[in-house]
């Protein structure tokens, strides 16, 4: 099982190369929406969905439009354009069909547009020259890793709310310290299954 590439890619995205805690992508929502477990999970699911959608859209655009015309250097700007449009679409769909989630996510939903984790996963898929199927699996792993990091950290922050914190560290400072500790703990996964 450990030689199965699908398994390795998912575990890689989930634990070893966790997008938030090992590669430090998507820190904005990680710090911004992790105050409550519910909205953290909702945000992560939205990011996971956008990641899959973005990969599905950018992969063919890169291989069938940009590469044949020697426009690979434009991929960042084209990917941002596609991701922005997709996020707008997701926002409209959520507003229509899941208004409570739309309200809970608030400003962070449009912020997925500039979430570097989404752009990161699409670009890393290209850099790793994954096939379309593997790209989708890698995006799933990355999205699940984002979900895991958000849920874990939301649990930490809910406990921080109850803790007796020195006044100078209250708010963002203690959140950053807690984030770094959670990140250090994920270093323990380095080298798992030879990844």
């Amino acid at each position: 099982m450990t030689s199965n590439p699908v398994f390795l890619v998912v575990i890689g995205g989930l634990l070893v190369n966790n997008f938030v805690l090992s590669q430090f992508l998507g820190i904005c929502p990680f710090l911004g929406v992790s105050k409550k477990l519910g909205s953290a999970a909702g945000m992560s699911l939205a990011v996971l969905f956008v990641m899959l959608l973005a990969t599905a859209a950018t992969h063919p655009v890169y291989y069938y439009l940009l590469l044949p015309y020697d426009l690979a250097y434009l991929r960042t700007i084209v990917f941002i354009l596609i991701i922005a449009a997709l996020v707008q679409l997701v926002e409209m769909v959520l507003r229509k069909f899941v208004p409570p989630l739309y309200k809970a996510l608030g400003i962070y939903l449009p912020l997925i547009t500039t979430n570097c984790a989404v752009l990161g996963v699409t670009i890393l898929n290209i850099d790793s020259s994954y096939s379309f199927g593997m790209s989708m699996i890698n995006s799933l792993g990355a999205g699940l890793g984002f979900l895991l990091a958000m849920v874990l950290f939301a649990g930490v922050r809910e406990r921080l709310e109850q803790a007796d914190i020195p006044p100078t560290l209250k708010g963002l400072p203690i959140t950053l310290i807690a984030a770094s500790l959670v990140s250090v703990s994920f270093l323990g996964f380095q080298g798992l299954f030879g990844l």
Binding site: L81, A85, Q88, L89
Partner: peptide, 16 residues
């Protein structure tokens, strides 16, 4: 090509 992609995205959003 970039303008075309932008136009396509814009149309998609308008319909949506």
């Amino acid at each position: 090509i970039v303008a075309g992609i932008g136009l396509l995205c814009g149309l998609l959003l308008a319909v949506a």
